[in-house]
Amino acid sequence: MRMIVGFLRKALVLQVRFTLTASPTPQSLHFLPHHFYPFSSSSTSISTSERSESFTVSYLIDSCGLSHKDALSASKLLRFETPEKPDSVLAFFNSHGFSKSQTSKIVKSLPRLLASDPDKTLLPKLQFFYSKGASKPDVAKIVVSTPGILKRSLENQIIPSFNFLKDFLQSDEMAITVVKRFSRILLFDLHTYVASNMNALQEFGVPKSNIAGLLMYRPMAFMVNPNLFRKNLEEVKKMGFNPSQMKFVLAIQAMRAGGESCWERKIDIYKKWGWSEEEIRLAFTKSPWCMIYSEDKIMAKMDFFVNKMGRESSLIAHRPFLIGLSLEKRIIPRYSVVQVLLSKGLINKDISLVVLFESTEKTFLERFVNAYKEEAPQLIKLYQEKINL
């Protein structure tokens, strides 16, 4: 038995030696054990894959402006060994007015687009928006803000969603305005969200024109669970808002802006400035916008009125319109004029904030600038400089 095993081992060694020294043919390689031939087809495929990945990463960095990290991540979703196809996609975006940074954002979000046929998959969607009155810059902004539009069905998703908006607003122009403001609306099931919430508003007695206004200027307000939306309607009505007035939909908009957590944060900000819950409610009923402004803007205005001007915080609660005024374009320029007049003893330091900041431009100039041309001729120049800044 040992002799037989030894014989077989020698025979195998001789066969291997003979195979390695002979000219390799496809037939001989077929019978060669895999581990004796290091340059097998699987090893070659790994090498090709690595080269493909390396080329893809380099292309994404050099031609698309992606970071190395983003390029590595994107390369897991697509590979290409030559630049022809991705070049055609980049050239397509460039020809339609997309900037390099805009194209980079799209590629980062949807890297697989680089493997698409732009004339078949991308062009029809852009042409649809053009046909509805959107300009090239408009379309670029729409796509950059919601790249997912490029991978959704034009016939089954985009066109039906757009037509829903157009049918309600009775205008392509108004519908495209909604899309420019909140392009993600085209990706939603509008019958589940928007239609249900529109019906709820009508049931509460909100005029169609006011619903259209809310849809035009705050389309995101409709993108909420219908049950929660009805709850918000009931809360607003309990606060005393009249559904037939525009303030009612503004209050809904304010409640929906940023979600419940954002609403609570803004309430906390006003409380930090000393407002009671009753004062917050009062301010909201007078001007729902006071709960729509960003937290930074609220803080900046309150800080100016209370710390810079030394006014009582509760005074602002009774005049919440003041929070909506521009610091740069109105409050600071007008206050600069007042400081000069105060330094010269020309006006009383307790001048009404309403008179000072809520009056029209014409009224302000007549009352605080032109009226003191002789005593303070530098006022008009100072005022213009502050506005220009």
Results as ranks from 00 to 15, higher is better:
12 L>N: 10
15 Q>I: 14
15 Q>T: 12
32 L>I: 03
33 P>A: 15
35 H>S: 12
41 S>E: 13
46 I>Y: 14
62 D>I: 12
73 S>I: 13
89 V>S: 06
90 L>F: 01
92 F>K: 05
98 F>G: 07
128 F>Y: 15
131 S>T: 11
132 K>E: 11
142 I>G: 15
144 V>R: 11
150 L>T: 11
156 N>L: 05
160 P>S: 05
165 L>W: 04
166 K>F: 09
170 Q>L: 13
176 I>S: 09
185 I>F: 01
190 L>G: 10
190 L>W: 02
206 V>A: 04
211 I>T: 13
211 I>A: 08
225 N>V: 12
225 N>M: 05
227 N>E: 10
239 M>F: 07
241 F>G: 10
246 M>V: 06
247 K>I: 07
247 K>H: 08
254 A>F: 02
254 A>G: 07
257 A>H: 08
264 E>Y: 00
265 R>K: 13
270 Y>I: 14
277 E>M: 10
280 I>C: 06
282 L>H: 04
289 W>Q: 04
289 W>A: 11
293 Y>M: 07
296 D>V: 03
300 A>H: 06
311 R>G: 01
315 L>W: 07
321 F>C: 03
341 L>V: 00
353 L>N: 02
358 E>L: 15
359 S>N: 02
364 F>I: 02
368 F>V: 00
375 E>V: 00
386 K>L: 00
